[in-house]
Write a protein that binds this DNA or RNA. Structure first.
Length: 453
RNA sequence: GCGGGCGUAGCUCAGUCGGUUAGAGCGUCUGAUUGUGGUCCAGAAGGUCGUGGGUUCAAUUCCCAUCGCUCGCCCCA
């Protein structure tokens, strides 16, 4: 039985052409968050399984975690998300870190679930978190970062909306305004999460079933709908509007509007799945009707660091997944033509390798990425290889060229050939690269058209 | 965890109402006289029809199981 060449179920191989897109996405993300002063960290993929028991949410730990025992009998898990890990890192150096602390990580996450469209068992995620700010300035910044990130990919604000709510506010609504107990509150929160997936009548039936007779008599369903139908915070019931968490929402919205974020909406149906959120939560939606769904989101989680037995540290963060991002970019035609990193394919005619090395080295020291064809095949085969790899330039080096000190530079797009010294070739190709391949690593700043405030 | 669809060449797929040498396009390789690719032309290689079992004179085709892929549900970082 031959070995399978397939990657593990739900995990992907990245051939260079796939990796190019991933690099483009990660580099763009990295560049954006670094502009805001976020610093990259990393941590092991394996964590003790208890790390996820506390706050992540039962389903994820019990059914969606890759958990196993190591040879020493320790229960470990492949990290399904980064938030508990980064909280651990912060808790470990709680006293010595300088706040506000801005951290980001880009890496693989593992979830044991059935793969389907847009969802894998191994996916990549960028986590961006700010630690140590209690006020809404942190929410303001984090959402601004998310907004800049999408705009750095060339997205316009018509392509996505940012929907905002507050976990704290919803806790008040469920417990105090509607008088739910803990169990009811959780069930209703789950139901709210599904409101856009089910029929309105069905929602009413299920909501009604969750309330007690006395709550029903007090008009619980109507009150719940009053809250959920509020398209603007001002439309919430008076009692709800008296809450501090309501004022926070208003503040964040005002700050973001002042920052030019015009596609922000209040949406009381945003609750998010994780148990650890404690304040403002938000989700970013694709406005494309084909793909009208939540792409990513985040919020405030002030309690996680404190779980490690240190003083709590207020935190706001979000995470963006590679698959949903790629889908978004694709559906809005925002993926640029990505090129290989190789600038020049060096082709050798005859037995000139010894003498040609100096030429190649010179081009490299001038800053070019040069791949050499080492096969000694016929010239046409070597050119064909370069073409197949998508490399734009070929340099032909034969005895004639070596004697002359000038080499044939051929552009495969146009077929044009010219003869130059190695140094001149380097400068021509670098010039070309700067002009024609701005996306080979990441977009230039010119692509980011941030409007003036 | 539940339900649907599909497994035929490297890729995308056709086909066999069960019956001698299983097809196409793309891709790959070779060639058109030796230092020029992408187009065109000529030719070639490549499949025990996912795997195991059953029915049958005969199975890639029918039946069962199994594995894999895929889409949806649940759930969602």
């Amino acid at each position: 039985m031959a070995l399978s060449t397939q990657p593990y179920k739900g995990a992907r191989d990245f051939y260079p052409e796939d990796k190019r897109l991933q690099k483009y996405m990660f580099n763009t993300i990295r560049r954006t968050v670094e502009k805001f002063g976020y610093e990259e960290y990393d941590a092991p993929v394996l964590e003790p399984v208890e790390l996820y028991l506390a706050k992540t949410g039962e389903e994820i730990v019990n059914e969606q975690t890759y958990a196993f025992e190591d040879r020493g009998g320790r229960k470990v898990a492949l990290r399904p998300e980064m938030t508990p890990t980064v909280s651990r890192l912060v808790a470990a150096k709680r006293q010595e870190l300088a706040y506000p602390l801005r951290l980001f990580n880009i890496g693989g996450r593992w979830r044991y679930e059935r793969p389907q469209r847009g969802r894998y068992r191994e996916f990549y995620q960028a986590d961006v978190d700010i630690f140590g700010i209690e006020g809404v300035a942190a929410e303001h910044e984090i959402i601004q970062v998310a907004d800049h990130m999408l705009r750095a990919f060339g997205a316009t604000r018509e392509m996505y909306t940012i929907r905002l709510n507050s976990r704290k506010l919803m806790d008040y609504v469920l417990h105090d305004f509607l008088g739910c107990n803990e169990v009811q509150a959780q069930s209703i929160a789950k139901l709210i999460d599904r409101i856009h997936k089910i029929e309105h009548a069905e929602f009413l039936v299920q909501a009604d079933a969750l309330f007690s007779p006395s709550q029903r008599d007090a008009g619980a369903v109507g009150k719940l709908l009053h809250v959920l139908n509020a398209k603007k915070p001002e439309l919430l019931p008076d009692e709800v509007r008296s809450q501090v968490s309501f004022k926070e929402i208003l503040n964040v919205m005002q700050l973001l509007q002042a920052s030019g974020v015009t596609n922000l909406r209040f949406d009381p149906t945003i609750v998010r799945g994780f148990d650890y959120y404690t304040g403002i939560v938000f989700e970013v939606f694709d406005t494309d009707t084909e793909n009208n769904r939540s792409m990513f989101g985040g919020g405030r989680y002030d309690g996680l660091v404190g779980l490690f037995g240190v003083e709590p540290v207020p935190t706001v963060g979000f995470a963006m997944g590679d698959v949903t991002l790629a889908n978004f970019l694709e559906s809005h035609e925002l993926i640029p033509e990505l090129q290989p990193e190789v600038d020049v394919y060096a082709i050798f005619v005859g037995n000139v390798w010894d003498q040609a090395q100096k030429v190649v080295e010179l081009m490299r020291s001038e800053g070019l990425n040069v791949a050499c064809d080492l096969t000694d095949r016929k010239l046409d085969k070597q050119i064909k290889t370069a073409d197949k790899k998508g490399i734009h330039y070929v340099v032909i080096i034969g005895q004639k060229e070596i004697d002359d000190g000038r080499f044939v530079l051929k552009h495969l797009g146009t077929g044009a050939e010219e003869r130059h010294s190695a140094a001149r070739i380097a400068s021509i190709v670098k010039d070309y690269r700067a002009k024609h391949l701005p996306h080979s690593i990441s977009p230039t700043d010119d692509d980011l058209d941030i409007e003036e405030v």
